[in-house]
Amino acid sequence: MELTPLLELLERLDEVHLQMLELAALKKQSIMDNQVDSLIDLLNRESRLVKLIGQLEEQRAEAAYAFLQGVGIRSNLNLNLTELSRLVFDPEDKARLLHIQQKLSGTLYRLKEANELNQKLIEQSLTFIDYSLDLLVGRPNQEITYHHPSDKGSSVTRPGIFDARG
């Protein structure tokens, strides 16, 4: 059975994931530079690549199924690449399959790490924004009820950015 269509799809998946990795690096810079418009553009580009990955994944599953049928397996097994490689007897094809598996696995790992870093950067940005807002307008748990000026309650109040006293 011909393994080439599956190998070509795996190569294409690796290429698209490498493009996602490039976008992740650009997103990191946009987040650090607080470039919201650039970030939105990158997210749109990333969305298009995610759709393409979904299509390639469907084609990969079909190619894997076709390969299984070619080697005499009639059920629609969902085998990973290592399991699939055990059914490849041509040493050159097996080596190519294991090579692309290792390559794709490395790309996916790097992409996962880049996305986790970007998530942490976004969380830090949001924490900083929240902290900045607290400094500007007071704490959110600060009481918003009227207190007579002579009432020296135990709560310490901090004026917000707007002071109505002239």
Rank of each mutant, 00 (worst) to 15 (best):
P140R: 12
R45G: 03
I31H: 09
L3W: 04
R165E: 09
E83Y: 10
L133K: 12
K94R: 14
V156L: 11
S38F: 06
D130E: 15
E113G: 11
L81P: 05
Q142C: 07
I73A: 03
H17P: 01
F67E: 02
G70A: 02
Q142G: 08
D90Y: 13
G72E: 02
L111Y: 14
L21M: 04
L126P: 04
E116W: 02
I100V: 04
I129T: 07
G166Q: 10
R74S: 09
N115Y: 06
L23F: 12
P91L: 02
E83M: 01
Q29D: 13
D151N: 09
P5Q: 09
E22Q: 07
T145I: 13
R74V: 03
V36R: 10
Q19F: 07
D134Q: 05
E143H: 04
G54K: 03
R96D: 07
N141K: 08
T127I: 06
Q19S: 08
L43V: 14
K27I: 14
L133T: 05
E22Y: 06
I122V: 14
R60C: 01
L133Y: 00
K152R: 04
H99A: 10
L3M: 05
Q102Y: 13
F162K: 11
E113S: 13
R139D: 15
H148A: 10
Y146L: 15
T145E: 11
E22P: 00
Q142H: 08
I144K: 10
K120C: 08
H147W: 08
I100E: 00
Q59E: 09
G138M: 12
L135I: 04
T107L: 02
E22H: 10
K28G: 05
M20Q: 09
A66R: 14
L97Y: 01
L26E: 14
G138E: 06
T157K: 15
L121W: 13
K112L: 10
N34G: 12
N34C: 06
R74C: 02
L81R: 02
D37V: 09
N118E: 01
V137M: 10
P159D: 00
L52S: 04
T107I: 00
P5T: 04
D90T: 00
E116C: 07
A63V: 00
D90K: 00
P159S: 13
